[in-house]
Nucleic acid binder design. Structure first.
Lengths: 173, 173
DNA sequence: CAACAACTATTGACGTCAACAATTATTGCT
DNA sequence: AGCAATAATTGTTGACGTCAATAGTTGTTG
């Protein structure tokens, strides 16, 4: 990398270079010295960030973000959900759901309807154009996933998905 | 940009309940109708969030966050790194590195040293107490990972780690 | 049945964080 | 010497999570 003895000004003090910094060698056998990527948790964190970024970049042109997309996908599976259900299942704060549903309503992708059982609650339902949007962007979603999983063959993707699902089902959703 | 079918005021429709909302059945065979967890990318996103939260909760008592921890771990592997190297390798904005190194310096875990080659650059090195911190918190890190990977047996954790590593090495780092 | 506790959606405030432009000091090029 | 490029830094903006507070509604209980 960059290695040069260009010490032009201070010959006095033992110049601090990368070499004598490494003077104290790191013991690769010590578990706390493993690289970052040796930690599955950290790997998940980084890959999760990347996945989110890819999704958001893909959704950018639609004016939506990953959170909106998550709400839409959830509504597609369980037509008609109370906002408190969305909050609980998706893990977002109730106050966040308000804005998300506002945006979706503004775009005509979802609709708030009064609950006949409880006038406090509102039932959020997916609209027709919401369904259309999901259908139209399905390819993009698959493309993102494909780009993310890059070097994995179908069988490996299957096992990865199964493993992640096992983790997710435990404590999440 | 997007068509909006925002017909919000339609008194003509009969009372909407959860039952007749479900009247329009979802076709589970349509790929865009799969559940949220059917998408590996979204799974990664959610699990990454959870992993980050667990790490941050664990580091909370130290006054550090996951980003600081990432910098420390990286410094432990490649003693003496320029800030721009930290930025490039960790994927954080250069302006973010400034604050992170500030915090680490304030805690005495790292040190900024002038580069003899280029007076613009600063070499960030891990200090002794930084090393101590990494050693002391190694167990916490392992505990977090263990808690996260909960229901997986050692062999499964191994395969999961290998798969994630393959993805991470492609385009990340 | 009247008072009270719990709940639903909503708003607002606060702190964190990432992404981007702008600035300063320095270097390399020609 | 002049000028583009670079490293670190500052400042700004917008997204985001968390918490507190409120209004309207429901259920319960004395």
């Amino acid at each position: 990398m960059l290695e040069s003895a260009g010490s032009s000004t201070e010959p006095r003090e033992p110049v601090i270079t990368r070499e004598n910094v490494t003077a104290k060698p790191i013991d690769a056998h010590e578990p706390w010295m493993r690289g970052l990527h040796a930690d599955t948790g950290y790997l998940l964190y980084r890959l999760g960030l990347r996945s989110g970024q890819l999704f958001n970049a893909c959704l950018q042109e639609s004016g939506l973000r990953l959170r909106h997309y998550a709400v839409l996908r959830f509504l597609a599976t369980t037509d008609g959900a109370l906002q408190r259900e969305l909050s609980a299942r998706l893990g977002y704060d109730p106050s966040a759901i308000v804005g998300l549903v506002d945006d979706l309503e503004k775009l005509g992708f979802a609709e708030r309807r009064p609950s006949p059982d409880d006038r406090r609650s509102r039932i959020v339902v997916l609209s027709e154009s919401g369904r259309d949007f999901l259908r139209d962007t399905a390819d993009d979603g698959l493309r993102v996933t494909g780009e993310l999983l890059g070097p994995l063959d179908p069988a490996e993707r299957e096992t990865l998905h199964a493993l992640l699902l096992r983790i997710a089902e435990d404590g999440l959703n």
